[in-house]
Design a protein around this nucleic acid. Structure first.
Lengths: 238, 238
DNA sequence: TTCTTTATCTTGTGATCACAATACAAAGAA
DNA sequence: TTCTTTGTATTGTGATCACAAGATAAAGAA
């Protein structure tokens, strides 16, 4: 099998108390979440073991875990790939994100105090709207941090793992998405969400979150453009 | 650590083409989903390896996978337990189920044809409302099959894994839930859902699904009763 | 009798190796 | 030149073993 591109993923330091498996999982999850591995790219235990300089054993456990979370797909021959996408499935992902994330935001609203509010504002200020491609990883990370901070304001919430699974499935498409966003004027829907939170307005918060999610892929306005976008995102078409 | 109860879980046959790890995963997942392992019960690699007559290696991968799906919890010392629950978290789980399952039902509605309709009716007929405790596992299995059949009528759906994760988290509480349901008159909300589908009425379908989910725990009507129920469900209180 | 320390046992982790299955490449034949 | 067959290489899986860490129990001392 001819792999078309070398892996170019961010390797973090493994902290004390973190097992090798947990570290491998974090590294690969971040890589998928931030679009550092394109759809269609297949991954092998030995290749990843070489890149991360560990034995195949923790790679295997981490890959199985990521498959559980739909970040990766196990094919019939047990080979592992980053999944590709259909336009219909893409739409389902976005609609489910909206349904789940607006639900989580509404459930969190009563718990957002001034401390959390300040942190949300700081996280939004970190995001470089309209910035260079080099800040893609940073922007994705900060955007996710903003949403995480909001949803976990509810100390009893259980939906964050489900939401992150959706982010993981959309992650491989963020690289091309951000490239295409360069020419688009990005509206800061987070500011709208913050206003809605201050006003304790559930409907406005819901609309802001929904708009923020749709905004992320606003350039794929028609089914044809979406199909073309998904084709371009995949490994083999580049 | 003194385990208080032996494992008594259903072992299925391992089919051709299914790896040992996949089989172990299926067996444990079914056991959790059907309430065969109580909350608070800790599980070890070597105990499960003995029960399932395999080496610890596939057990480890399966347990990690189930932890990813929130069926199991990894404690700080890396020991694995079936999670316990708080009343607030329980409420969040139910509300999130309602949000997600009504979304999935609505998205599926346009795709339900007469073939799927017949299968839904057959699955509902399989459920023994008001039946003996011995049919608990069967009823849980059929109830899940009904909902699965409905949501996967939409060929592009992606929410089923998220929904099943919620089922997994509630699974350990089904044993006591079913015991308490013996004295309750169970309304067949599935029939209401089927009527709503025939009438192509999204609002009615949404209401029926929401009622069905609430009905499952109708006996825990007050926060106090819920708290008591969760305490009783756990391993250590029996 | 209680508390502290030490020893033993049990747990999870990770490395390694063997093996089976699949895929790919090369060689030979038509 | 193309197709088929065979051989080799690469893949994932599972078993085993060693080791580290943590938990529990027992013994001794206060």
């Amino acid at each position: 099998m001819n792999k078309t591109s070398p892996l170019n993923i961010t390797l973090t330091d493994r902290k004390a108390g973190v097992t090798i498996t947990e570290w491998v999982y974090d590294v690969l999850r971040h890589a998928v979440m931030c679009g550092q591995i394109l759809p269609g790219r297949s991954l092998t235990l030995r290749e990843l073991a070489k890149v991360l300089e560990v034995s195949p054993m923790p790679i295997r456990v981490a890959l199985k875990r990521l498959s559980s979370e739909r970040a990766l797909e196990v094919k019939e021959n047990r080979r592992i790939i980053v999944p590709t996408m259909t336009a219909m499935k893409f739409n389902e992902l976005c609609e489910t994100r909206i349904s789940l994330e607006t639900h989580a935001a509404i459930r969190a609203l009563p718990y957002v105090d001034s401390v959390i509010m300040a942190q949300l504002e700081a996280l939004d200020d970190n995001i470089d709207y309209g910035g260079e491609l080099a800040s893609m990883e940073s922007n994705i990370t900060h955007n996710h941090a903003f949403h995480r901070m909001l949803y976990t304001a509810n100390p009893h919430q259980i939906s964050l793992p489900l939401i992150e699974s959706l982010w993981l499935q959309l992650g491989p498409f963020l690289r091309l998405s951000n490239e295409k966003m360069q020419g688009h004027f990005a509206i800061d829907r987070h500011k709208e969400a913050l206003i809605a939170i201050r006003q304790k307005n559930p409907l406005a918060l819901q609309l802001a979150i929904a708009a923020d999610i749709r905004e992320g892929f606003a350039f794929v306005g028609t089914p044809e453009l979406l199909h073309q976008f998904l084709e371009e995102s995949a490994e083999s078409s580049q």
